[in-house]
């Protein structure tokens, strides 16, 4: 059974090496500061053996964007959830790219750029992947409104 590592333990280990990297942690995940993401991720890959990046997700919360990295260690059969946040206020939202550590991040980061508008510093080919050049807006942001017929149960539509 894949052992999901406790966020607090991993946060402690990261904190010993990189004092300012961890912003918060709980039982399930570690929240890192985005500037320290690349170094901390490198440490997780080399020293803690997280050689497999399962998935990267972005979520649009009202005050910030959150990026969630699910990491797996195939050698040790362990899993970890890593998070980082970036502010929405700036016109240009940017986070370091982890492509140099895990090649699997390539297309996933392009997808997040396309659908959320979050740029990844250091990505070799950051351009839209699903939508076409000239499409206005980033669809998965909450302020991109769709007119969906029949969404939700009758009487439960809040929007």
């Amino acid at each position: 059974m894949t052992q999901l590592l406790s966020g607090r333990d991993v946060a402690r280990q990261i904190g010993e090496r990189f004092p300012d990297a961890v912003a918060a942690s709980d039982e399930n995940a570690v929240l890192l500061n985005s500037e320290a993401l690349l170094e901390a991720a490198g440490f997780l890959k080399e020293d803690l053996g997280f050689d497999y990046l399962t998935s990267i997700t972005a979520i649009d919360y009202p005050e910030y964007f959150e990026l969630v990295y699910h990491l797996t260690s195939i050698k040790r059969n362990q899993g970890l959830v890593l998070k980082t946040r970036c502010d929405k206020g700036d016109a240009h939202v940017e986070v370091p790219s982890v492509v140099s550590l895990w090649q699997g991040a390539d297309l996933q980061e392009r997808e997040i750029y396309d659908l959320f508008g979050i740029s990844f510093k250091g990505h070799p080919n950051l351009k839209r992947i699903f939508l076409w050049d000239g499409f206005q807006g980033h669809p998965l942001r909450k302020d991109f409104v769709l007119d969906v017929p029949g969404g939700g149960l009758k009487g439960s539509r809040k929007e």
Binding site: F130, L131, P139, L146, V148, G151, G152, L153, S156, E159
Partner: peptide
């Protein structure tokens, strides 16, 4: 080049209930 079948399922899913 991707995206010729991008139907926006992830966005549409936010407008429908879990069972839908």
């Amino acid at each position: 080049v991707f995206g010729y079948l991008h139907r926006g399922i992830e966005k549409l899913a936010e407008h429908k209930t879990y069972l839908q």
